[in-house]
Simulated scan of single mutants.
Amino acid sequence: MDEEARERLRLGLENLMDDRDYLYRLISNIDWDAQLDAVRSVLRQHRQAADRVSANIKDLEEAAQTYDGPYHYHVVDEHVDAMWQSSYSDAAISLSAIGMVVPMIETIFAQAFQALGEKYVAKGMSPPQHKRWTRAEQHPERWNVQRYFATAGVKTDIISGLRQLCEASGVSPFLGPDYMDWMAALFHYRNQMFHGGFEWSIAQRQSFVKLIAERGWERYFFWSTTNGDPWICYLRDDIIDALPERVFAVLGSLGRFTKALPYELMTDSGDEGPTTSEV
């Protein structure tokens, strides 16, 4: 197959592919679409349940305001109890959402980078110049997203490691302008919720309040309060609802990155077909 025929074949196949399809050149054993469909289904059920809770609270509020019979205080107590319980059910929805999506994001990048690193090694090629590679040299975990390579050595820090590896590999320009910030916010929140539960320690709450203010993350999170102080931290509804589509966009970004990788890096032996002299 000559170069012109190979190019025609490549262009013909690419016209049939979505951006995320190119990611299968790195990861071919995971059904991302099925996973996202499952996440959408669960989030939809949770949203419906939350809407029912909100409607019940509204009905109880109206009853507490309009009912003037002998059981008035009982109705008021029911309204207060319903609001109290919703504080925890809403937290459960946030935890469920973050618990499904953040591990998915983590494994997308982890497996893609691991596969990419193996290709560089197999082809005897080097990734683009970056301080990560200079610091890591031939460290066996140089492609591990959980490792951040600082001047003082390697640290386990997936938030910093992911950002550094995206920059070092050349992925960053393919991501949306706010995606690293969005992922950092989700990873920080995941860590807090997984280790602190719904009701974090006072110190953890104060620390996260400070982090939200420093990073401008008010668009992602809001708090319920007790006696005017932060109590339970939640993901905003619009952030939860958008999670599947944002993950879908990440897949597309990584697909475009994969498509742009050097041909000689991504071509396996035998992919090119016979040469003209062999036909």
Rank of each mutant, 00 (worst) to 15 (best):
A5K: 13
I98D: 09
E61D: 11
Q35N: 09
S94R: 04
V279G: 12
K259G: 05
S89W: 05
A150T: 15
E272H: 04
G161S: 07
A115L: 11
R44V: 02
Y189F: 15
A112P: 09
N56F: 10
F198L: 03
L186F: 00
I232A: 11
V209D: 06
Y220Q: 11
S87H: 13
L211H: 05
T258V: 10
G252P: 04
R219W: 03
Q129R: 14
Q192M: 14
R10D: 10
L175G: 02
L13H: 14
Q192I: 12
G69T: 11
R52G: 01
G161A: 03
G255D: 01
Q129V: 06
G270K: 05
D59A: 15
K119A: 07
F113Y: 15
Q114G: 14
G255S: 01
Q164K: 03
M100F: 13
R190E: 01
R147L: 08
Q45C: 09
Q192T: 11
S207K: 11
P127L: 04
Q206C: 04
E62S: 12
P140I: 00
E3C: 01
N15Q: 13
H72Y: 06
F257L: 00
H72C: 04
A203E: 09
Q192E: 13
F221I: 11
V209N: 07
Y88E: 03
I98A: 15
A112K: 07
I158V: 03
R40K: 14
V209K: 11
Y73Q: 01
E78C: 08
R147N: 03
M125A: 12
F149G: 02
S160L: 06
K131F: 10
D268M: 07
G99Q: 09
W200C: 00
K210W: 02
L16E: 07
R52F: 00
P173N: 05
E7A: 15
F208M: 04
T66Q: 08
G117D: 01
G216E: 01
I27V: 10
A91C: 11
A82V: 04
M1W: 00
S253C: 06
V154M: 14
Y71L: 03
G270C: 08
R236S: 02
M266H: 14
R132K: 05
V39W: 00
V42S: 05
H139D: 08
L261M: 12
G197R: 06
D19W: 11
Y220A: 09
W133E: 02
Q85I: 03
I108Q: 03
M180Y: 01
W84A: 10
Q138I: 12
M17Q: 12
S160V: 01
V76L: 02
Q204K: 14
L116Y: 05
E278I: 05
V171S: 03
A115R: 15
L95F: 11
P274G: 05
L261E: 06
Y120K: 06
G270T: 02
E264A: 14
V42R: 07
R25H: 14
I158E: 01
N15G: 15
S96A: 09
I239E: 05
L265Q: 06
P274I: 08
N227E: 15
A49E: 04
A115F: 08
L13V: 13
E214F: 01
Y189G: 07
Q138V: 11
A92M: 13
T276I: 00
W200L: 06
D51M: 10
F257D: 00
A38W: 08
Q35K: 13
R219V: 06
